[in-house]
Design a protein around this nucleic acid. Structure first.
Lengths: 353, 353
DNA sequence: CTGAAAGCGCTTACAG
DNA sequence: CTGAAAGCGCTTACAG
């Protein structure tokens, strides 16, 4: 192995192959017409010298602009979760804008399937070079995926996965395993005959499969660890939310020591705070601003969190790597399942979330 | 706000200021002699148009190479921890090598202070443009820091902090808070009169302050939460390690329900596995390969982990941002304190660790 | 104190 | 099928 004295560039290749730079370029990127003979020769020399194009020079010289589209739910005061992936996307945007990447964002309403139809159509007609999208509405998302495939636009799923599609990659959570881990945490606090209440907010229909996976994860944990206490599930629909207080109170018994909310927990926490939490351990999801308040004051014991900012960031970077750097992208990318408590939330507040 | 139709470049500035590109360059980077008048003019125009240099072009045109030095402990089979920061450093290296960054690594032995002296001298004589180093030996590290300051070489602390130095930045853990969090986890398992055993391995003298901070964190947690069970500390020195089994056995009582090892737990876990762990909750540090084995088989309940790979990665990127991009660097960067269990370790095994 | 020119390693019309 | 030349947005001697 010789010291790589001065990296080999396209000029070296051209000289050694007795051709011009333009020809080397044509061979390398399959543009234009080159004789098989020169083709061979150039490729061999590239391989021999382990030629790696200088990506800086490449991007500088090329006037090609890559246009990416992002299609995700809009964040709401009620559920600010989607702020975080968006933040990650914007962080990535800053990093790649010098490389000729332009990103256009489209937002849909989780409670309104028509908004998804409308926005996804917009995306399609804008004809982008790559797409990051959250496939929360199952049937419509599959349709959309297939249209993307058909137009040969690479697309990446974020937050939710549709396993049988032809997506480039998935960045998100393992919902089942998150619930399973929540089971472990809860089990530390339970006694032999304690009861557990699992609460699902059914108002965001699109998210419902997530909630079910989480519940199943927790129930499986208990089953596998021979826990025989009573476990109750409660599905709260939108029109019941105003009566949350009565509903929850009615379901919490003397023996209930565990409360698992399969999504954002702050609404419940607010009610519990009024009545006092007693011996209850409360688990919820996602380190959003409203949840944080109740984590800080001790009503919520743990939040499970799956790096929403990182999901957004990595999705964009994956498209960048794929389109610009021609790198191979890993298809499945599960985020770490983070356990956040009053004692460690401080270090999850910045861009690391 | 006008659409930023075609980013403004140095050519636009030059034209508008009625000077040459070279002069703009001189103004921007304080090289050479420029009249105050033109200086003013150029700066104003830059500000007005919000000129942002194209870093790609900058790096491509410049033949300046930045040489960085890394000085960290070498990883050992006994304690492979330092593999992980090194991995992060190498990840960063790949990302910045196209930008003319060269990294040279120096390793010292945590059990041999002379090796630190020797290697740090090497670093200094190589006269790098920036340094990342782990200041594990207190006195020697302060000396070294001061020499760096004197030579005007920016340096970044990784893993440990020396608060009063003139370092550019710190990337690492909050050891105290990690112990505090471990206290919370343990408390979920303790009963009123349970006992807790805290184990410190004193064989790596350089790490001892870390261990003490962790112990203090845990003890403070218990104090603040009115826990009155007995807490015992045990410091094990190198020559006692072979008798680990007897020592630990002698200290574990019927009432002991918590065992906190302030560093790598696998050696203890191996002994406990032989005798059976009973009702013990065992907490240790760092998701290293030997620890993982005992996390998987249930001997270790939780590992506290502070993103060693990320520490290494971000340290290098910070020097890059500082030297090449002239960005401001945040001085204190604490990593998230991660709680890792059998149920979520899977997603911490790749580069995210 | 200032500018013209060459060059960094590529891509991209254009001409043949 | 192939090459010469211009250009991407900067930096860097060199000359004055």
């Amino acid at each position: 192995m010789i010291e790589d004295n001065e990296k080999t560039g396209i000029n070296d290749i051209a000289r050694l192959a007795n051709v011009s730079k333009a020809t080397v370029d044509r061979v390398l990127y399959n543009r234009g017409r080159v004789s098989d003979e020169t083709r061979e020769k150039v490729l061999n020399i590239c391989k021999e010298l382990n030629y790696q194009p200088n990506i800086l020079a490449q991007r500088l010289a090329s006037d090609k602009v890559y246009r990416l589209a992002v299609l995700i739910p809009k964040s709401t005061p009620d559920n600010p979760y989607w702020e975080y992936p968006l933040k990650g996307i914007e962080n990535a945007e800053k990093e790649v804008e010098n490389y000729g990447i332009k990103i256009k964002k489209y937002f849909y309403d989780l409670k309104d399937i028509r908004s998804f139809r409308k926005e996804s159509l917009q995306v399609l007609t804008s004809d982008p070079d790559g797409i990051v999208f959250a496939p929360e509405f199952n049937r419509e998302s599959i349709e959309f995926s297939q249209k993307c495939s058909h137009k040969k636009i690479p697309y990446i799923f974020i937050d939710s996965n549709l396993p049988k599609q032809n997506h480039l990659s998935y960045f998100g959570q393992d919902t089942y395993q998150g619930g399973y881990l929540a089971g472990k945490l809860l089990s530390l606090h339970l006694k032999k005959h304690s009861e557990v209440l699992i609460l699902n907010f059914a108002n965001e229909l699109a998210n419902y499969p997530h909630f079910m996976d989480r519940e199943k994860g927790m129930r499986d944990y208990f089953t596998e660890h021979n826990y025989h206490g009573k476990i109750t599930s409660l599905n709260i629909s939108p029109d019941q939310e105003t009566e949350l207080k009565e509903i929850v109170k009615g379901k919490l018994h003397r023996r209930t020591r565990g409360l698992f909310i399969t999504s954002s927990a702050h609404k419940v926490a607010r009610q519990i705070q009024k009545t006092g939490k007693g011996n209850l351990m409360i688990l919820g999801y996602d380190l959003t601003t409203p949840n944080l308040k109740y984590l800080k004051n001790g009503i919520i014991d743990f939040l499970i969190c799956q790096k929403p900012v990182t999901q957004g960031y990595l999705s964009i970077m994956a498209l960048f790597d794929h389109l610009v750097q021609k790198k191979d992208i890993q298809k499945s990318n599960f985020m770490p399942i983070e356990i956040i408590a009053k004692e460690n939330y401080q270090y999850y507040l910045d861009s690391n979330i």
